[in-house]
């Protein structure tokens, strides 16, 4: 009961959705699933959010290291929840959109979440530099190919590429870096992309079949 029913559910639902692609009256099942998923996800959040709350409360309660930051997290969580659920400061009241301009939630989003998100994202500039340093110390043939390809594309996207190779005569213009970059993007790059995508397509087929046939079932836990 504890594992057989879920296995049956996985098998039946999976099979129905595979076949639905070929059956016009069943083609909207994918969208229906998406709606189901969205609603289940809200309930799951009670577990996730509850867990976040519990972990930080426990940290504060037991005065663990850095518990002060847990207080900050809890306050941030509860304040946002209160403002958002009761639509505090919303110019259109409780019936207005949660993202209405000037609403409390929108202010939180613009003043706190947006700068934090953009800065976290911007850290990539430094990380990409350190990763480039590592990748560009070509240790073997494969790394050298990666390096050359990246370098050509990088230069091809900047005026430097044309400055360096603009002197190459027209009949050999393919060797001008910007042209070479376009050629790499549209040929060798495409070949690599396609082999990855075809492989992924086949990999998903095999993995899905293993799940639907109940061969891979660790995600269901045990009978106990």
């Amino acid at each position: 009961m504890k594992r057989t029913v879920p296995l049956l559910i996985t098998g039946i639902v999976g099979t129905v959705l595979i076949v639905s692609v070929l059956i016009p009256p069943a083609q909207s099942l994918g969208e229906d699933f998406s709606l189901f998923f969205d609603i289940i996800a809200v309930f799951a959040f009670f577990l996730g959010g509850g867990n976040l709350f519990r972990i930080h409360l426990k940290k504060v309660f037991h005065r663990k290291e850095d518990y002060g930051f847990s207080i900050v997290t809890l306050v941030g969580f509860l304040v946002t929840l209160t403002i958002g659920l009761f639509k505090i400061g919303n110019p259109e009241g409780i019936s207005g959109s949660i993202t209405a301009a000037g609403s409390g939630l929108q202010t939180i989003f613009v003043s706190i979440i947006t700068p934090l998100s953009s800065t976290m994202y911007a850290l990539l500039a430094f990380y990409v530099a350190s990763a480039s340093y590592r990748a560009f110390r070509a240790k073997n043939r494969e790394a050298t190919i990666l390096l050359v390809s990246a370098f050509v594309i990088l230069l091809g996207r900047t005026p430097l590429g044309m400055m360096l190779t603009g002197w190459i005569p027209e009949q050999f213009s393919i060797f001008q870096i910007p042209n070479l970059a376009v050629w790499i993007m549209n040929s060798a790059n495409l070949a690599g992309q396609r082999s990855i995508l075809i492989g992924v397509g086949l990999g998903v087929v095999a993995m899905s079949l293993r799940l639907i046939l109940g061969m891979d079932r660790t995600y269901l836990g045990s009978d106990k």
Binding site: A131, S132, R134, A135, L146, I196, L197, G199, V200, L202, G203, V204, A206, M207, R210, D216
Partner: peptide, 17 residues
């Protein structure tokens, strides 16, 4: 560039098997 080993595409789906 950054990891010791990378499972590329299909290898990710084959891993559990």
């Amino acid at each position: 560039a950054a990891c010791d080993y990378t499972l590329i595409g299909e290898e990710l789906f084959a891993a559990s098997a």
